[in-house]
Amino acid sequence: MISISDVKKIYQSKSGPISAVDGVNIDIGQGEIFGVIGYSGAGKSTLIRMLNGLEVPTNGTVNVNGQIVSKVKGKDLRQARQSIGMIFQHFNLLWSRTVLENIQFPLEIAGVSKKERLRRANELLELVGLDGRGDAYPSQLSGGQKQRVGIARSLANNPDVLLCDEATSALDPQTTDSILDLLVDINKRLGLTIVLITHEMHVIKKICHRVAVMEQGKVVELGDVLEVFRNPKEQVTKRFVREVSQVEETGETIDHLLAQYPKGKVLKFTFVGESTEQPLITSLIRRFDLDVNILQGQISQTQKGAYGTLFVHLDGNEETVQAAVSFAEEQMVKVEVIGG
Rank of each mutant, 00 (worst) to 15 (best):
I2M: 06
K9L: 02
I10D: 07
G16A: 06
G16H: 06
V21D: 12
V21N: 09
D22N: 15
N25I: 03
I33K: 10
F34N: 08
I37M: 03
G38I: 02
G41Y: 13
K44E: 14
L47M: 08
L47S: 09
R49E: 05
M50A: 01
N52W: 01
T61D: 14
V72Q: 05
K75Q: 14
Q82R: 14
I87F: 10
F88E: 06
L93T: 03
W95Y: 10
F105R: 03
F105D: 06
P106Q: 02
I109F: 14
A110D: 13
A110V: 08
R117F: 06
R117W: 04
L118Y: 09
N122R: 14
L124S: 04
E126C: 00
G129L: 12
L130M: 06
D131S: 10
D131G: 04
R133T: 05
G134L: 01
Y137A: 02
P138V: 01
Q140P: 01
L141A: 12
S142T: 04
S142N: 07
S142Y: 04
G143I: 01
K146V: 01
V149S: 12
N157F: 00
N158A: 02
L163P: 14
A167D: 03
T168Q: 10
A170F: 11
L171Y: 11
L171K: 10
P173A: 09
T175N: 09
T176S: 10
I179E: 11
I179Y: 11
D181T: 08
N187A: 01
L192F: 03
T193M: 02
V195P: 14
I197M: 14
M201V: 03
M201N: 05
H202G: 13
I207P: 13
C208E: 09
V213G: 09
G217K: 01
K218I: 03
G223P: 12
D224N: 10
L226K: 03
L226N: 02
R230A: 08
P232Y: 06
V236G: 08
K238W: 03
R242P: 05
V244L: 12
S245I: 15
V247S: 13
G251P: 02
H256V: 00
H256L: 06
H256D: 12
H256P: 00
Q260W: 02
Q260M: 09
Q260H: 06
Y261I: 01
P262C: 05
K265M: 09
L267W: 11
L267F: 06
K268N: 07
F269L: 15
F271T: 03
E274N: 09
S275A: 15
Q278F: 15
P279W: 11
L280A: 04
T282M: 08
R286F: 05
N293Y: 11
T302A: 07
K304H: 06
G305H: 04
Y307H: 07
L310G: 06
L310T: 04
H313E: 07
H313W: 15
S326L: 12
F327R: 00
A328S: 15
M332N: 14
E336R: 10
